[in-house]
Amino acid sequence: MVDRYFSVDRDFWDCFETRLAEFDADGAMDDAAVLLSSYGSDDWRDSANHDYQYELQQIAEGLSSGLRRHFADWVRGLPIPDRAAIRAPLRIDPGALFLSFNYTPTLERLYGVPRDRILYIHGCASDPTEALILGHGWERAPQERFDREVQDEDSDMRILEGNSILDDYFDATFKPTAKVIEAHLGCFERCSSVGHVKVMGHSLGVADEPYIEEIMDRVDLRTTRWTV
C-alpha cells in the first residue's frame, strides 16, 4: 500500500515524516471510484451507499494509524547494544539536558543519563503504553481541504463523505508540535540556563522546526554556542 500511494525512492524512509504529506489522495479516490455505482443501476445494492467511503477508510487508516502502529512495533523491537560493543561511543555528559527525538532509551541504557534529564519529545519506546508521535508539518489552509466543496441538492453524499475521510488522514498524520510544546513548557523553560546547544543526528526537518525555534526563544542567542 505504501508503494501504491507514495513515491518511494531511496530517500523515502530518511524523509518518512515529510512524505506522509505527499499521500496520493487523488490516486486513492480513483481506486475507490470503481465502487461508485450509479443510483438506479440494474446491479444497485444498498451497500453501494457506503462501499466508496469504506474503501477510502481502509486506505486512509492503513496509512495513518496502521502505519504508526507498525512503526511503533519496529522501534520497540530495536536492540540496544551493550556499551562494550560500541567502538567509538559518543562523548555524552550525563548531567546535561537532553531533548531526545530518538524514541529508544539509548541515552539511559548506553550512556547512563538519568531519566529526569531527558525529554522524549515524541514518546519513549520503553513504555509499551505510550503513544509514539510522528507526522508531517503541512498545516493545510481551508482552501486546501477536500471538504471545501459546497454541498447542494446535486451533491453525491458518498463523495462528500469520502472527502472528509481524506481530510481525516492528513489531520491524523499531522505532527501536533504546538500541543507537544505546550504540554512540556516546563522542560523548555529549563533551557534558559543552557550555554551550549549540541544538535546530534537530527535531520532538522520542517516538521520539527517549532522545537528548535522554542529553544532559540529560551536561550540567550548572544552568548549561547551552537554545534550542529
Rank of each mutant, 00 (worst) to 15 (best):
H196G: 04
R115L: 09
R222V: 00
I159S: 03
P128M: 01
D220N: 14
E182M: 10
E209W: 12
A141W: 11
R218K: 13
I181M: 02
A125Q: 10
D116K: 04
D154K: 14
H136E: 02
A207R: 11
E161W: 13
V206Y: 12
R148Y: 04
C187W: 15
L160W: 05
D171R: 15
A172C: 10
R145G: 02
I133R: 13
Y111V: 00
G195E: 13
D220I: 00
I118Y: 06
V194R: 09
R117F: 00
I159R: 15
N163Y: 14
H196R: 13
D154A: 12
L132K: 06
R140A: 09
E144R: 11
G205Q: 11
I165H: 03
D154C: 07
H122A: 02
D220P: 00
E149G: 00
P142W: 12
G162Y: 10
K198N: 06
D152S: 07
V150W: 09
I215V: 14
I159W: 03
A207I: 05
P142I: 06
D152Y: 00
A125P: 04
I165A: 04
E139N: 14
H184G: 01
P114E: 09
L110S: 00
G135M: 05
D127Q: 07
V150C: 09
P142F: 04
R140K: 13
S164N: 09
L134K: 06
L221K: 13
E214V: 04
F170Q: 06
E214C: 12
T106K: 10
H202A: 09
L160V: 06
C124D: 13
D127C: 00
A141F: 12
P210E: 08
A178D: 15
E209L: 09
G123R: 08
T177N: 12
V150S: 11
G201R: 10
E144C: 04
R190G: 03
S126A: 14
G186R: 12
C191G: 01
H202W: 07
S193R: 15
I181N: 01
E182N: 12
H184A: 12
E139G: 10
S192I: 10
I212E: 12
A131I: 07
H196M: 03
T173A: 10
E149C: 04
M216H: 07
V150N: 05
F170N: 02
E213L: 08
D208Y: 01
F146M: 11
A178F: 08
D167L: 02
Y211Q: 02
V113S: 04
S203N: 08
S126T: 03
